[in-house]
Design a protein around this nucleic acid. Sequence first.
DNA 1: AATTACCCTTTACACCGTACAATGTTATGC
DNA 2: GCATAACATTGTACGGTGTAAAGGGTAATT
Lengths: 258, 258
Amino acid sequence: MAEEISGRGDPLKSLHLLWGRASAGKRGPKSKVQLADLVQAAIAIADAEGIDAVSTRRVAEAVGISAMSFYTHIPDKSALIDLMIDAIAGGPEGAALPRFDPANWRDNITMVATAYRQFYLDHPWALQVGTHRPVLGPNTLRAYEAILSVVDGLGLDEVEMDMTVTLITNYVFGAVRDVARAASVKQQTGMSDDEWWYAIAPFLETIDWAPYPVASRVGPVVGELYGLGDPDRAFTFGLERMLDGIEAMIARKAALRA
Amino acid sequence: MAEEISGRGDPLKSLHLLWGRASAGKRGPKSKVQLADLVQAAIAIADAEGIDAVSTRRVAEAVGISAMSFYTHIPDKSALIDLMIDAIAGGPEGAALPRFDPANWRDNITMVATAYRQFYLDHPWALQVGTHRPVLGPNTLRAYEAILSVVDGLGLDEVEMDMTVTLITNYVFGAVRDVARAASVKQQTGMSDDEWWYAIAPFLETIDWAPYPVASRVGPVVGELYGLGDPDRAFTFGLERMLDGIEAMIARKAALRA
DNA sequence: AATTACCCTTTACACCGTACAATGTTATGC
DNA sequence: GCATAACATTGTACGGTGTAAAGGGTAATT
């Protein structure tokens, strides 16, 4: 299994585990470990060494059970991934959602987008998990509720709200990918960005740049100022453009109503 | 190797292969296969069955050489991934870049963004490849040149141009992820979205939706109209918002100059 | 003719996810 | 009290992965 894909196994089994509806097991011997132990161990491994290091064998060993005992608690690896995703979506602890004042919608979106970005920066391995089919766990749902709330009360209809949320999450996902991946690539290759550029620089000088006039003009300027680019600044820049675009839509709808 | 990461092995080896500077081998017997044969075979497998199905053994077998013979041509799997990415970045055939008229910049960006999206839709496995460190092959560079060109001549400085390109590519990447992933998930699970929803629907009715008021209001409306959502419409919607945001920036800069 | 450089191959290792069967443990029904 | 059903845990095994190591064959160079 090369790529981790959430929602791969029997969806119902994952859902039952996500919502704590596992049958619990009355008859046999007590479990040596809890479901949450396995999930936390897996997250710890992923945070420390990346998602690649998370194998069923390693997780089982980490909590002190044998490789196959893992499957007593979790039906397959994709269910483990689902549980990991929902667990980290919970954030540090189940804090109540703040009340968002629509009047400050720009600040609200900025706050939510930044938090969403931080989520991925804290657990960059989550980027590598395919989440087309949403992990419908309690924490994931709460995150969706939060981001929907910040576009509520702006005069948008339901479909526009959903598409605006999609716009925001899509942008954040794309924007965080580079910076988070940087860490994981370095982890796996043991080579920093600077070392990498230094290694390939001599070769780049042998390339004929004539077919790439704009790139050869822009590239050096950007590189000199920011190295590989300043992810924080690029994120803020893109977010501002997006907010301006959303503002134009809100203004247009308000004008229509007047 | 669970996740494919480009630029993992010796960067110089990949670069030499990308630019056709491989030593070619004068002394020994003729190669039974060409480098391009291996790359094309790997792409065919990935297009048909996803990146997971691409293993060095299968690629070697597909072109008629033994498993280890693969390593005569390509130093390791990450180099193969690099070559695959650059090969598909070339598009159908090396067509010359169109001249972009800055006056039609909205159309230009739309065209490039749509083409970039189509690139991922044609080869969804490319989404799963970590590309933090760019694959600096000729075709990839040409694609970067193209997208930089459409933000050239708009009155932006080099850094703004780069960040605008980043904004666009980030959005497209995020936007295409869902729809492309849908195909790959279905491929791996053999379950369509409808089947999936049908399977989990009974469970969803047992959930207490009170903590998720906005989601439970928006979700059904969106779902009824579009099922899991209309990716094409969502893409266009987000792109329009982004263009509006870029337009505001261009106007502001023009006003400053006046 | 000898050497050298190169392509191809077989074998092997350590890892992966997990199917299967066996063994041990506990709460329940009689 | 005891048989039984339900459960947890375990070792073994299979087919897959990337690739290191070593050896055999072939063709151009010396």
